[in-house]
Design a protein around this nucleic acid. Structure first.
Length: 196
DNA sequence: GCAATGATTTACT
DNA sequence: GTAAATCATTGCC
């Protein structure tokens, strides 16, 4: 069952990031469905420095974040990797959740093909740049709505016990100064697919 | 440990 | 208009 638009439109992006653990992200590219359960997320908000839209600054790149909840924000990082975000909150408010890792469920063969046959399955989706490549996500997905037929998030009935959710600081955003220490990263405890 | 890599942003003329 | 600095990472040394 796909998550309804109302799930994304809530105002507490940190809460949404936490609740996305155990949900599943799917894409359909070239007629092949690939996807996995979300095991690692990070929350971003215009109110803190780690966010591209810090202070409500809108640019050609991040304008998708100002759309209503439920849109996909995909962008190129380090000139090499695509990162996948879920836009939350109401139109005009730039909050988003970065999907950092998945546990593969569907389309394993296709994901291995995209990542290279010799890859250990553990490395298929255990990082934000890896999972986008495995699922065929690129900038063409920027601005897509997550109730579409080619990219969506489902509740597959998995529930992650709150005792198994680990809260920590976000990764790779030292430039955000004091906001880099916010406990806005959520991982599933003991899951092999969580990035290191 | 660190180079690769390019879109985006900012700082200039 | 052009140019330089920056970056929510990965994979190979």
């Amino acid at each position: 069952m796909k998550l309804p638009e109302s799930f994304y439109e809530r105002t507490n992006v940190v809460k949404i990031a936490r609740e996305l653990l155990g949900k599943s992200l799917f894409t359909k590219v070239d007629g092949v469905v690939t996807g996995g359960m979300i095991v690692e997320t990070e929350a971003y908000s215009w109110k803190e420095r780690g966010c591209h839209a810090y202070g409500g600054r809108m640019t050609a790149r991040n304008k998708i974040m100002f759309d209503g909840g439920g849109h996909a924000y995909v962008y190129l990082c380090y000139g090499v990797h695509h990162l996948f975000n879920v836009v939350t909150n109401r139109e005009g408010i730039a909050d988003a959740v970065l999907i950092r890792a998945l546990e593969p469920i569907a389309g394993l063969k296709e994901m291995k093909r995209r990542r290279g046959e010799l890859q250990n399955p553990i490395h298929l989706t255990s990082g934000p740049g890896k999972l986008t490549k495995a699922m065929g996500i690129d900038r063409n997905f920027n601005g897509k709505f997550l109730l579409n037929h080619d990219v969506w998030i489902e509740n597959i009935g998995e529930t992650v016990n709150s005792k198994h959710i680990v809260v920590s600081e976000r990764i790779g955003i030292d430039y955000a100064r004091e906001d880099a220490m916010l406990p806005w990263r959520f991982t599933v405890k003991g899951n092999k697919w969580v990035s290191k």
